[in-house]
């Protein structure tokens, strides 16, 4: 693995130099996933090695922003601890291809970081994060009736499906649907707004763009606080 990684990293570096530019959305643009393509990829996710993932978490500099064991130390970074293997793996793939690109700043760093990762590295990282637990750092919330309705029932009039139907009753997520429990509130808000204005479009069928389309800022903030208060 070691020699191969170095060689492929250098090859990628060379390629990337030609392609990339300082402008926004300049990373290699990738095709959106079809469900079929994703299932094929999903079936071929290598078995991850948790201890290699732990080491890569440090050496690939993930830890410097995402914190010890993937628990974010700042409001900018999402926690990765406790998220699902498929979601983490797909997210890294999407950064590497440039499909996930919410503009320069944070995404640009992740696109750069993902260039040197092999499929096996991504699996190692995904297995490592899935193994960690995420304790809520926010106080428990008394769920307001309107927020509870969004979570459990959605809003038919605004074509908003209930969050819980995909992200689980306890925000635990499922396969490529991310866990939300314990997630950094500011990251949650930023992400929802990015979906809303179509800066983030890497979800299959782009459902999140629809669900967030009519959400108000107040609703997004309430959902962020609610999910931040859960643990995974």
């Amino acid at each position: 693995m070691k020699k191969t990684l170095l060689i492929s990293a250098l090859a990628l570096t060379t390629g990337f130099t030609q392609l990339a530019s300082a402008n926004e959305h300049a990373a290699p643009q990738a095709q959106a996933w079809t469900l079929q393509q994703w299932h094929q990829t999903q079936n071929n996710i290598p078995n991850g090695n948790i201890s290699k993932g732990a080491e890569l978490h440090k050496q690939a500099l993930c830890m410097t922003c995402h914190g010890e064991n993937g628990v974010a130390p700042s409001r900018n970074a999402p926690s990765l601890a406790g998220n699902n293997i498929d979601y983490t793996f797909k997210t890294l793939k999407d950064y590497q291809s440039g499909l996930r690109n919410e503009g320069h700043g944070k995404s640009a760093v992740m696109i750069a970081a993902a260039q040197s990762l092999t499929q096996q590295d991504m699996a190692d990282l995904a297995y490592f994060y899935a193994e960690q637990t995420l304790q809520s750092k926010a106080p428990a919330q008394a769920l307001s009736s309107s927020t509870e309705r969004l979570v459990r029932k959605g809003d038919v009039k605004r074509m908003i499906t209930p969050c819980a139907s995909c992200h689980g009753v306890h925000g635990e997520g499922n396969e490529i649907t991310p866990a939300l429990a314990g997630q950094t509130a500011h990251y949650f808000i930023r992400t929802m707004k990015a979906y809303k204005i179509k800066h983030r479009t890497n979800d299959i069928n782009q459902g999140m763009g629809q669900f967030t389309h009519d959400l108000t800022d107040e609703e997004i903030h309430a959902l962020a606080d609610y999910y931040a208060s859960l643990s995974k």
Binding site: T13, A60, H104, A108, V109, A112, Q115, S116
Partner: peptide, 17 residues
């Protein structure tokens, strides 16, 4: 370690802004 030079390049652009 390619992660250093890739990420530092983005940090450089980040810093300029």
């Amino acid at each position: 370690n390619p992660f250093y030079r890739h990420i530092r390049a983005e940090v450089a652009k980040n810093w300029q802004r």
